[in-house]
C-alpha cells in the first residue's frame, strides 16, 4: 500500500466519501517537495494530519479547526495568483501555491470537512454579497455555510474573517443562493455531466474534480 494514512480513513468514510478522498499520498508529497519545495510539502502534510486528527471530534469543532487551518493562507485574486479569471483551484493547488480567492477557500474547506466526515446535507457552498466597509461597496463573494440541522441558522466559514461566526453575526453578508456541491458531484457520478457540460458552474466543477483525481495520484500541472 502506497497510501498508508488514507487506508485508515477507508474504514471510516462512506462510499461517496471514498471518492471525496482528496488527500495526497506519499508519492504526491515527494513530488511536491521536489518541484515546489519542502514548505509546500509540509503544508500538505499538515493538511493530511489535520483531517486525521479531527475526525472523531465534535462537528462544530471540526468546522472551526478546518476554517482556521485554511484561513492562514493568504487571500489573492485569481488574476493575481493564477494569471486568469475565475479559476477554481483544488485544495492541493491552493496549499501548494499558498494562496487562493474566496471560491478556493470555500471549496477547500468543503472538501476537507467532507473528508473529515461531515455530511453533505449540512454544507452549502453559498453565493453572497459582501459589504466591504473600507471601500463602501458590495462585492460578490463565496462562503461555506454549515447547517447543524436543516432549519438551523448556519455557521459561516469565510476567509474575510478569521473565525467561524453564526450567520446572524454576519450583517455584512447577504446570501443570494446556496448550492449543494454533492448534487453536482452525483450528477457527475451518474454520468449526466456530459449532458450538462454547457452549464458554466458544472464546467468549473468537472474541471476541478478531474484535477483532484489526477493530483491525488501525484499528477501536478
Amino acid at each position: 500500500m502506497r497510501r498508508l494514512l488514507p487506508c485508515l480513513f477507508c474504514l471510516v468514510l462512506t462510499a461517496v466519501a471514498a471518492d471525496m478522498d482528496v488527500l495526497p499520498d506519499e508519492r504526491t508529497l515527494a513530488s511536491v517537495a521536489e518541484r515546489h519545495g519542502q514548505a509546500a510539502a509540509a503544508r500538505l502534510r499538515q493538511w493530511r494530519e489535520l483531517v486525521g486528527q479531527i475526525h472523531g471530534m465534535h462537528e462544530e469543532r471540526r468546522v472551526e479547526l478546518v476554517n482556521r487551518f485554511f484561513n492562514r493562507i493568504p487571500s489573492r485574486t485569481d488574476l493575481a495568483h493564477w494569471g486568469r479569471e475565475d479559476y477554481w483551484a483544488t485544495p492541493l493547488e491552493m496549499l501548494v501555491t499558498n494562496g487562493g480567492d474566496c471560491e478556493d477557500f470555500a471549496l477547500a474547506k468543503y472538501f476537507t470537512l467532507r473528508a473529515a466526515g461531515v455530511p453533505n446535507e449540512r454544507l452549502r457552498v453559498t453565493y453572497v454579497r459582501a459589504w466591504i466597509a473600507g471601500e463602501k461597496r458590495m462585492e460578490s463573494h463565496m462562503v461555506l455555510a454549515y447547517y447543524p440541522f436543516p432549519d438551523a441558522e448556519p455557521l459561516i466559514l469565510d476567509n474575510l474573517v478569521p473565525e467561524v461566526r453564526p450567520a446572524s453575526a454576519r450583517t455584512d453578508l447577504t446570501p443570494t443562493m446556496g448550492f449543494n456541491a454533492e448534487g453536482l458531484w452525483s450528477a457527475k457520478q451518474r454520468g449526466q455531466a456530459g449532458r450538462l457540460g454547457e452549464v458554466s458552474r458544472i464546467g468549473h466543477w468537472n474541471d476541478l474534480v478531474q484535477r483532484m483525481r489526477e493530483q491525488r495520484s501525484g499528477v501536478l500541472r
Binding site: 452549502r124 447547517y147 446556496g178
Partner: peptide, 11 residues
C-alpha cells in the same frame, strides 16, 4: 433540475 431557495440564511 433542482435548486435551493434561501430565506436569508435559512434554507
Amino acid at each position: 433540475g433542482t435548486a435551493e431557495s434561501l430565506a436569508g440564511w435559512q434554507r
